[in-house]
């Protein structure tokens, strides 16, 4: 059933949320991202696909300046969110990351209670006026992440005690709780089993209603299932970017076709 979605996808032209132009990333001497231009739309799921080491995760981490935490990484070019250059000197990466949330490859709940995990973001950003407000935010986030029913009775239990799929949804809840405008997901399902993967994919589709979601995946099926737009990266280059249906059914670039048909990667 999921495969059918490619065809019935609504491809309405949403406003552009993130505009990247001429992005270069260097890790020390390695040129990891070469001159990438891409526009990411609001309320859309955009998938980055490509073989391992093609730079898709690196590019994703440019969008909320997570590369700042790596000493040797250097980013050039122009990335704008809502028209504002996020690499501008005046921009505080802390404020940026509150706006652009991120979910990581491996579930990484903090060694705290489930409640504290989700409440962490709202607390540091001062989103809750009082305790009951915070309770509401946590409950809403956990509901959005479709994990509320599973954990509502043990909010004080440590987040590390959950199963892998639950942990990842907890991390999504944690990211959602900060009320970001963009949600970056770096292979969110790679450490999960198929059932958990299905849960998370379902969730991503729902999140699209409110957020611009960018997901990096090495699974083409997953990209096909959840995304409306797809970007194919290869050796640090953005090879092709377009409607997901288009990319998977009728790619323009021979490299994209080779990858999709399993000849490279």
């Amino acid at each position: 059933m999921n495969d059918m979605r490619i065809l019935e996808r609504d491809v309405d032209a949403n406003a552009i949320k993130i505009a990247a132009k001429g992005v270069q990333v260097y890790y020390g001497d390695t040129h990891a991202i070469k001159d990438v231009d891409v526009d990411i739309q609001d309320k859309t799921v955009t998938a980055f696909i490509g073989p391992s080491g093609c730079g898709k995760s690196t590019f994703l981490r440019c969008l909320n300046r997570m590369n700042d935490t790596i000493d040797v990484a250097r980013v050039e070019g122009d990335i704008r969110i809502d028209g504002e250059d996020i690499y501008d000197k005046a921009v505080d990466p802390v404020q940026l990351r509150a706006k652009v949330g991120m979910v990581f490859q491996k579930p990484n709940p903090f060694p705290k209670s489930i409640f504290d995990n989700v409440a962490y973001g709202p607390r540091i950003h001062g989103l809750a006026k009082n305790k009951s407000d915070l309770d509401d935010i946590v409950e809403r986030a956990l509901r959005r992440a479709a994990i509320w029913n599973e954990v509502k009775d043990r909010l004080a239990a440590p987040g590390t005690g959950l199963s892998g799929g639950q942990q990842q949804r907890l991390c999504i809840a944690r990211a959602v709780a900060t009320e970001p405008e963009v949600l970056l997901m770096d292979e969110p399902c790679s450490a999960l089993d198929p059932i958990a993967t299905a849960q998370v994919e379902e969730l991503i589709d729902e999140l699209r209603q409110n957020y611009s979601v960018v997901i990096v995946t090495h699974s083409m099926q997953q990209a096909a299932r959840v995304s409306q737009k797809t970007a194919f990266f290869h050796l640090g280059n953005l090879v092709e970017y377009g409607e997901t249906g288009q990319i998977f059914t009728n790619p323009e670039d021979p490299r994209t076709e080779s990858y999709i048909t399993g000849r490279i990667g």
């Binding site: 997570m66 935490t69 404020q95 990351r97 991120m102 491996k106 990484n108």
Partner: peptide
Amino acid sequence: AMRDGSFGLGA
């Protein structure tokens, strides 16, 4: 990963 998780939330 712990640090990344926290930075990713804007801490």
